[in-house]
Amino acid sequence: MRRLTVLVTYDSIRPVRWNIDYHSGVPVYLQLVQQVQSAVAAGTLRDGDQLPSVRVLAEQLRINRNTIARAYQALEAEGVIANRQGAGCFVTASVTPLRRSVRTERLAAAIDGVIVQAHNLQVTGDTLRSLLDERLRRFKASKGGES
């Protein structure tokens, strides 16, 4: 039991999967911003959770401190986190609009991929739309009584 408690505590202080991919072509600070946004959207980061300090995260990821500071500033400007003088950065957004926009963006990217495929397979927009409806119906039916 004791060991389990320790594991849970360890996990609870690392709710963000910090990972810099230099081959993505996405600016490094923006990758950090998106990772925090995703963690908030997924609910692994919640209102009141503390983010690692700029120093700790910079050393861990071996990136420039100013890059982390820039990411935190952007998140602060979006109202996702608040910088409490001396105490650190804390999540303030369990705000639904952000979570919705992040989710929508994600889905939009996946749908774009499908549209490109449909185009290459010479499937028309109407066929694609009716296919989507059909799949949605099937998905709902498979979930049965759940709503």
């Binding site: 230099y22 120093r55 910079a58 050393e59 071996r62 420039n64 100013n66 500071a69």
Partner: peptide
């Protein structure tokens, strides 16, 4: 990263001449 950039990182300027680039990629 940790010592030189410790205070006022926004005013600590670094000029590095190198051909070993990968370890400094994030810096």
């Amino acid at each position: 990263i940790s010592a030189f950039q410790d205070r006022n990182p926004e005013r600590r300027t670094l000029l590095i001449s190198t051909h070993l680039i990968s370890e400094l990629e994030g810096v």
